[in-house]
Design a protein around this nucleic acid. Structure first.
Length: 602
RNA sequence: GCCGACGUAGCUCAACGGUGGAGCGGCGGUUUUGUAAACCGUAGGUUGGGAGUUCGAAUCUCCCCGCCGGCUCCA
């Protein structure tokens, strides 16, 4: 998300009466104190902006001699902050005429502050500054009374950030920190981070042997048998369901000659993100980063009547995008992925109805996993294709649809649309609260025109359809990553690689092993993914622990006693909820099969 | 791509200028056990790759690759 710098908040006025202490105020004051500490440690530092954010705060600095901060510097800064806190320095507010404030900061060599003042609207005549000892900051406030309150503060990390969030600008040094009202709150927050680390899909993917990354293929996952089961279940469900919804699946080439990408507009607008390779002097191929161009090729294979619309082509071909190396992130940001993709050709009048149908699919699919999501309307980017009037019309249509889609929260992000049209994105959060786009429903007036797509309307005239590009899961890779973190690895039964494992108590007793093998076979025959514990010589306890660690949802233990009883009743351990239950095998099959069929999260 | 950290056995980590270790996992054996780790033994590493400094480099320097946290970019 582009960094939002709120100049008004950084400078602006409204003078409030003393306010109740809030975490935001505490954190914002901690940011000031941190800046004061940095300025003391590195005289000549220029400070930019330093807001409170979710769970903490940051401040951006330009250090003298273009010095860069490393994590060891945080120790010194934190120590200096503690010393400043101990001195109980008051936060003093002053309101200055705009010109006076400008010359104050200019005299101090604080050019970022001067720039902020210069960006303020002309109507702003005075601004507020806060003094904390020798440190002066342009700031609306409010703040804590004095620095004595700022004791439960921890600095977390440093980062290089582009000034005003623009890559063309020089980089500043940012320090992130967190601040809480009590030491207990701080400890709880750090524990929350530790829990998130345990839910990290990259760790779970390795532990559960679902996927692997190799240095020779950065960002391109190797899907291992356990991971393929999850992918295939998701795809099978999607495929059946979408057939029933009138979608027609196609498969198209993974590479096409440059000419196709020129027609689609990708050559001009997306080339930097594509894997391109020459095959001889005249010919360059591109590995597809999106399915849309070939979907338009398929549409054009024959003439279409308006009666066929909406015409829905789906496909899950692998896509490759040459993402910049620093942006890769486990399964959540990859270079090779598949999508539950579809391209729907509609008339302009059909747009709203089709969007409603797609949003309904979204509700159902995310509901299956109890996933919470929000929607985002992305509007015309700077690098757009087509004419602004068409864009305005399309954006207005999508806004109407979002407003009619009661209950689901949405935001509007200017400039976040695709180069060929505006879009509605589905947003999800990972274990540590980072936001990721999963599904997207995009409107496209450009590619059908560029590919010369046509249908014959009721009056016999040829007209250009509109294309809706849509994915619900989005990238299957990303979706699996999100699912793993959401369920902390304990996937719903229908997705579990092994759904039920049979553990023998005495593995040297042939009758017991016979019973265990037979049971596993019966469960398999009933359509469940069953496995026989395969640790020769291990004790039952060790086998159970192994199954627990592999997050097998159900474990059935059988031993001499069961064999001797001979009543076909076994003890079933439910590893997700804990506890065991006695069940007949028939009952076990029925209960598990029902849970699989229901796709319940568990 | 940019800023900062990191890269030692399959995994988690130790050794931090003087001959590379542990636990788990693997393998072999002993044990046959009733709901989250039995015991003994054993194999396994050109310390991410390359160059340099040094009598000597996992350790110091540089380059490359990967990876982690941010920034930017985007499913």
């Amino acid at each position: 998300m582009p960094e939002e710098v709120d100049d008004a908040a950084e400078a602006g006025l409204p003078l409030e009466a003393p306010v109740e202490l809030s975490l935001d105020i505490l954190r914002h004051s901690a940011a000031h104190l941190m800046a004061a500490a940095v300025c003391e440690l590195f005289p000549g530092t220029q400070y930019d902006v330093g807001p409170a954010i979710e769970d903490g705060f940051f401040y951006n600095f330009l250090l003298p001699d273009d010095r860069h901060l490393s994590e060891v510097d945080l120790v010194a800064v934190e120590e200096r902050m503690r010393a400043l806190a101990a001195r109980r320095i008051p936060y003093q507010r002053e309101v200055l005429a705009r010109d006076r404030a400008r010359s104050l900061f200019e005299a101090m060599g604080q050019s970022f502050k001067v720039a902020i003042i210069d960006r303020l609207g002309e109507e702003v005549e005075s601004v507020a500054v806060y003094r904390t000892g020798d440190f002066v900051d342009l700031c609306r406030g409010p703040h804590v009374a004095d620095s004595g309150l700022l004791t439960t503060v921890k600095l977390l990390r440093v980062a290089g950030v582009y000034w005003r969030g623009d890559e063309a600008n020089p980089q500043l040094q940012r320090i992130y920190g967190t601040a809480w009202l009590t030491p207990g709150d701080l400890a709880a927050y750090l524990e929350r981070l530790a829990e998130a680390e345990r839910r990290d899909h990259r760790r779970l993917g390795r532990e559960l042997e679902m996927f692997h990354f190799e240095p020779s293929a950065p960002g391109m996952p190797y899907w291992l048998p356990n991971g393929v089961i999850v992918l295939n279940e998701l795809i099978d469900f999607w495929r059946r369901d979408h057939r029933a919804r009138g979608y027609h699946e196609v498969m198209t080439p993974l590479i096409n000659e440059k000419a196709l990408w020129e027609t689609s507009g990708h050559w001009d607008h997306y080339r930097e993100d594509m894997f391109l390779f020459p095959v001889d002097e005249q010919t360059t191929y591109g590995l597809k980063p999106m399915n849309c161009p070939n979907a338009h090729v398929v549409f054009n294979l024959r003439r279409h009547s308006y009666r066929e619309l909406p015409l829905r082509y789906s496909d899950i071909d692998p896509l490759h995008r040459f993402e910049r190396s620093g942006t890769l992130h486990g399964l959540l940001r990859v270079r090779k992925f598949m999508q539950d993709d579809a391209h729907i050709f509609v008339t302009e009048e059909q747009i709203e109805g089709e969007y409603a149908r797609i949003l309904e699919i979204t509700r159902i699919y995310y509901g299956i996993f109890n996933l919470e999501y929000s929607l985002r309307l992305g509007t015309r980017p700077t690098d757009f294709m087509g004419d602004p009037e068409t864009w305005d019309r399309a954006e207005a249509a999508l806004l109407r649809i979002l407003e009619a889609n009661a209950g689901i929260p949405f935001t509007v992000e200017a400039g976040e649309g695709a180069f060929y049209g505006p879009k509605i994105d589905i947003l999800m959060k990972d274990a540590i609260g980072r936001s990721w786009q999963t599904g997207t429903i995009q409107l496209d007036f450009q590619q059908p025109r560029r590919f010369g797509c046509e249908y014959i309307d009721a009056s016999g005239a040829a007209r250009t359809p509109v294309t809706i590009h849509r994915v619900i899961y989005g990238s299957l890779e990303r979706f699996v990553g999100i699912l793993l973190e959401h369920f902390a690895g304990q996937l719903p039964l229908w997705l579990a690689a092994v759904q039920v494992e049979v553990v023998p108590v005495q593995d040297d007793v042939e009758a017991v092993m016979e019973c265990a093998r037979g049971l596993a076979g019966r469960l398999e025959a009933a359509g469940l993914r069953a496995a026989l514990s395969d640790h020769p010589g291990e004790r039952m306890q060790a086998r159970i622990r192994d199954a627990e660690l592999r997050k097998v949802p159900y474990v059935v233990v059988v031993g001499k006693r069961d064999v001797e009883r001979g009543d076909d009743v076994v003890t079933v351990r439910d590893t997700r909820r804990g506890g065991t239950a006695q069940r007949s095998v028939a009952e076990l099959v029925a209960v598990l099969s029902e849970e699989v069929a229901s796709r319940r999260p568990g």
